[in-house]
Amino acid sequence: MTTHVLHDTDVLLRRSLRHIVRSPDTIITTAVTPIAMLLLFVYVFGSSIDVGTDSYVNYLLPGILLITVASGVAYTAFRVFTDVSGGVFERLQSMPIARPAFLWGHVLTSLVANLTSLVLVVLVALAMGFRTGAGLLAWFEVLGIMLLFTLALTWLAVIPGLTATSVDGVSGFSYPLIFLPFISSAFVPTDGMPGPVRWFAEHQPVTPIVNTIRHLFAGQPVGSEGMLALAWCVGLLLVAYALAMRTYRRKIT
């Protein structure tokens, strides 16, 4: 049975990777918005934002990476929705294939697509003067956090993909996700925010995740905030996975 799952997931993964290769615009579009934000904030607002370090692009990049994933998973939701609304989902469900393979094919595709977009964004940041003192280990830790975060948001994206009734409904879920980093330490330090906003900013997941990546890039210890970031990522992942699987099970019976 497990070989079944692996084989069927592999076949379906290849299929949706082929989709991405045939419409590379989805990856480019995913990367364009965060890159535009990067340019806008660094070259237009950056000079009047005081973040206490000399390089605003260094400060900004971690938050931009999260925004990249938040907009990238909208395509995952869209790909799932296309299969469900176009009948491919039902055809697959009526066939003797491993039940989890359909979702895993899409989830792994999402990881590949988002990592590609993230690489594009980092390359642009490097061209804009982003510099890091991170060693190999720190880079791997950043990669690990981004993978967990992408996985969590991907499973979240599966839910509207399975349940939406229109294309608009599918992508709508990602707007709040893209907005969340604005009320965090991603663009400016939380110190200057008014009371309730500051409280929200300091208690939502984006702030510890952004701070942790920032510390890793700066070659500094991540401290307890690193554990908090990890806990948020794993917690979100578990909740999103459970909800997505419940939605899926309801859909297939």
């Binding site: 299929r15 082929r18 989709h19 045939r22 419409s23 176009g86 009948g87 491919v88 039902e90 055809r91």
Partner: peptide, 10 residues
């Protein structure tokens, strides 16, 4: 099924 279930991108 009643409506063709094919992958349009492939």
């Amino acid at each position: 099924g009643q409506f063709a279930a094919v992958d349009a991108i492939l």
